[in-house]
Amino acid sequence: MSERNFICVACPMGCELHVALDEKGGVAAVTGNNCKRGVAYAQAETTHPTRSFHSTVRVEGGNAPLVSVKSRAPVPKAMLMDCAKATRAAKAKAPIAIGDVLLADVCGTGIDLIATNRVS
């Protein structure tokens, strides 16, 4: 049985998680966590690690040159740099409200990028 170590990032505590893996590479046991979010994090980080993504998108005709965006839900960790490239090419038109979808289904992740600021 093999083992993996993570630092949990579910909250600022930064618990050091020790994950015992089963034969199929799945999670057998998690120790070192202070709450159940640690278990969920260890599960996710072992099988399909995801991250929140954020960046900016250029705005046309607005009172700011850029608008900040984030992924509505975490995207696969491996897709972060693809998402970053996608935002560099994207453009949005003012006015923009918080929550507006600026890039739907970013890089085929099924996740939308939404505005996190207002532009008039």
Binding site: I7, C8, V9, A10, C11, P12, M13, G14, R51, K77
Partner: peptide, 12 residues
Amino acid sequence: GLTRNIVQCLDD
């Protein structure tokens, strides 16, 4: 810095 920032901003 916060541990999660070391993980998500550097290690990743």
